[in-house]
Write a protein that binds this DNA or RNA. Structure first.
Lengths: 229, 229
DNA sequence: CTGCTTTAGTGTCTATAATACACTATTTAG
DNA sequence: CTAAATAGTGTATTATAGACACTAAAGCAG
């Protein structure tokens, strides 16, 4: 049944650009390589697609192995297949990107022992393979998606303040946004609802906490559409 | 050097969704399969990625083999890798889409003997493999791209009338557009220039022919950006 | 308890872009 | 010269984006 072709059979991997926000800045998850090639260099988490395994399944499996996180916003990015991109031979990689909210990123800290670390996007070390190119592509896509989808919302805990939401947008876009215009557009989307709670933190007026309107949000999550800025 | 991994090595193919406009309607190029599986069914043109061959190079090569056309707008679409998508074994396919202008689509007629035919998108036969899914994805992307890029312009000969350009948009979007609004937006883009020529054809007022402003267009082609509708 | 600091929260005006909508102009065929 | 067919043109309305500044509420210091 399997493999009856007389054509080259490259290895196929998945690589993940996993983003989060820490301390107001966009970070990406990197792993320090333990073996050759590129030993000691940082790389995107990823690995080989297994026998009979779907590509997205492989990406989710790798994600869980590396970070312990399930059930994520995960999107196929691009497939990189230059013949020389891996010095060991022909390896084609399907890149995905994912977002982890600030309250779930703690889980991944458990695996930190294995050389897994969050790196600020504005202070990246040199990366293995063509992972710099992949990351550049991923950041492009992320910023783009931000403009017409709700991706940014993936990066927040269940309840959040509007300032926190704006902070996410500013961190990804790399520029400041006007508070009033931002709030007006969010309100227009009609996907948030107030809670009675307030975030009491620090020496200043407490901010109201919001959450998504569950029904609306679930529908939109599938379509991916919405959220212009 | 090559293939030192102990991991599954699927075959990797490229498949192409090649669109054109014929008689005012969106068409896609299909090939009738000569062998098993899906013998006699229609399929997207495509084929295996060769040893040491870049993915896009493979797509361009297949395109040329099937249609004789070079130098096309070609864009990676998505990679499909469900384990069971090919009954012969694990085959991962990287899908591309391309657009051929009405004056170049004639070239491809030369290979028609081999069961290569244009099919109207609104009257497709059943397709082999998961090619219906791939096509659906491609059409989605094409319509989307139309709204914020200049892709539509790829489907026209060097000189064309504004009505022809509008026809392209209507064929892809599947709905009519207002003539005055369409022309205003085109003018705003500032990427067309008038020629002195007119298209004398039929029993009616002749239309002025336009062409792209070469410099502007070359810049935009790379970026891919521009052209909201 | 007063006031200083810090972040939350709110509304208007202007500019730009999108849409709806109808008539005149030019050509050929008969 | 008239009929048929497509080319070509402008205005008014509505929706969206961006610029912009002050008041509100909490904690802490004195």
């Amino acid at each position: 049944m399997a493999y009856t072709y007389e054509y080259p059979r490259p290895s196929v991997t998945v690589d993940l650009a996993i983003f989060t926000i820490r301390e107001g800045k966009l970070h990406v998850l990197l792993i320090r390589r333990g073996g050759q090639p590129f030993k000691g260099k940082w790389a995107l988490p990823g690995g080989f697609v297994l026998e009979g395994e779907d590509l997205e399944t492989a990406a989710l499996r790798e994600l869980q192995e590396e970070t312990g996180v399930r059930d994520l916003y995960l999107e196929q990015l691009y497939t990189f297949g230059e013949p020389q991109r891996d010095p060991r031979g022909r390896v084609i990689t399907v890149a995905y990107f994912a977002l982890i909210s600030s309250d779930r990123q703690e889980l991944s800290a458990q695996t930190d022992a294995a050389g897994v670390e969050w790196h600020a996007m504005d202070a990246l070390p040199p990366l293995a393979f063509d992972h710099e190119k992949i990351l550049e592509y991923a950041l492009d896509r992320l910023r783009n998606k931000l403009e017409y989808t709700t991706v940014g919302f993936q990066l927040l805990p269940k309840k959040f303040t509007l300032s926190e939401l704006q902070g996410i947008y500013e961190a990804i876009l790399g520029r400041g946004l006007d508070k009033r215009n931002f709030r007006r557009k969010i309100a227009l989307l009609d996907i948030l609802e107030e809670t009675d709670e307030k975030k009491m933190e620090g020496v200043h007026r407490p901010a109201r906490l919001y959450r998504f309107k569950a029904r609306k949000f679930e529908k939109l999550k599938d379509k991916g559409i919405l959220f212009p800025f």
